[in-house]
Computed example of a mutant assay.
Amino acid sequence: MRLDIILQIITYCTLLLTSYIPSVDSHIPSYVATPSNKNEQFCQLSDNCMHDTVRICGTMGDQKRTFLDMCDLLEFACDTNQIYTHVDEMEGCPEEPNYPPKGFE
């Protein structure tokens, strides 16, 4: 057989097989609802979060706070209904994480 015929057969078979592969629309199941507010969203995210113990700085207005990691920030936001935002620079954040959180002594 000639090489061009072999390439045509391979191309045809490839196109035929790829037409049977189902497409993926989303990795999120259709029954999952979007949280109605930021606190609810943080609570959902904290439920499945894996702690990596990489300290981060969070800010809420002018107040800065050091968290053990991103999961700690999400859990704190969920528990206290205070929405902190992760900031990259650690300047101005307390050296150590604030434990225990205010109101949880």
Results as ranks from 00 to 15, higher is better:
Arg2Trp: 00
Arg2Glu: 04
Leu3Phe: 05
Leu3Ile: 06
Leu3Gln: 05
Asp4Val: 01
Asp4Pro: 01
Ile6Trp: 04
Ile6Asn: 01
Leu7His: 08
Leu7Met: 09
Gln8Val: 00
Ile9Val: 14
Ile10Asn: 02
Ile10Asp: 00
Tyr12Leu: 13
Cys13Asn: 11
Thr14Val: 12
Thr14Ile: 11
Thr14Arg: 08
Leu15Thr: 04
Leu16Lys: 13
Leu16Glu: 13
Leu17Pro: 00
Leu17Cys: 05
Thr18Gln: 08
Ser19Arg: 09
Ser19Leu: 06
Ser19Thr: 08
Ser19Val: 03
Ser19Tyr: 02
Pro22Arg: 01
Ser23Arg: 07
Ser23Met: 06
Val24Ile: 13
Asp25Met: 13
Ser26Val: 06
His27Met: 04
His27Val: 06
Ile28Ala: 02
Ser30Val: 10
Ser30Arg: 12
Ala33Tyr: 02
Thr34Trp: 00
Thr34Phe: 06
Pro35Trp: 01
Pro35Ser: 06
Pro35Ile: 05
Ser36Glu: 10
Ser36Phe: 00
Asn37Val: 06
Asn37Arg: 01
Lys38Gly: 10
Asn39Leu: 02
Gln41Gly: 13
Cys43Thr: 05
Cys43Ile: 03
Gln44Asn: 12
Gln44Asp: 14
Gln44Trp: 11
Ser46Gln: 12
Asp47Glu: 15
Asn48Arg: 10
Cys49Phe: 04
Met50Thr: 15
Met50Ala: 15
His51Met: 03
Asp52Arg: 08
Thr53Ser: 14
Thr53Lys: 14
Thr53Tyr: 15
Val54Asp: 00
Val54Arg: 15
Arg55Pro: 00
Arg55Lys: 11
Ile56Gln: 07
Cys57Lys: 06
Gly58Gln: 01
Thr59Val: 14
Met60Gln: 14
Asp62Gln: 10
Gln63Ser: 12
Gln63Ile: 11
Gln63Phe: 12
Gln63Cys: 05
Lys64Tyr: 05
Lys64Phe: 10
Arg65Met: 14
Arg65Thr: 03
Arg65Glu: 11
Thr66Ile: 10
Asp69Gln: 03
Asp69Ala: 06
Asp69Cys: 01
Met70Arg: 09
Cys71Glu: 04
Cys71Ser: 07
Cys71Gln: 04
Cys71Met: 10
Asp72Leu: 03
Asp72Met: 00
Leu73His: 09
Leu74Ile: 13
Glu75Ala: 13
Ala77Lys: 10
Ala77Trp: 06
Cys78Trp: 02
Cys78Ala: 05
Asp79Lys: 15
Asp79Ile: 10
Thr80Lys: 15
Thr80Phe: 05
Asn81Pro: 05
Gln82Tyr: 02
Ile83Asp: 13
Ile83Tyr: 09
Tyr84Thr: 03
Tyr84Gln: 04
Thr85Ser: 14
His86Asn: 15
His86Pro: 04
Val87His: 01
Glu89Thr: 15
Glu89Gln: 15
Glu89Phe: 12
Met90Thr: 11
Glu91Ser: 12
Cys93Trp: 07
Cys93Asp: 01
Glu95Phe: 08
Glu95Gly: 07
Glu96Ile: 11
Pro97Trp: 04
Pro97Asn: 05
Asn98Thr: 15
Asn98Val: 15
Tyr99Arg: 12
Tyr99His: 12
Pro100Ser: 03
Pro101Tyr: 01
Lys102Cys: 07
Lys102Tyr: 11
Gly103Cys: 08
Gly103Glu: 08
Gly103His: 07
Phe104Lys: 09
Glu105Trp: 12
Glu105Ser: 02
Glu105Thr: 02
Glu105Val: 09
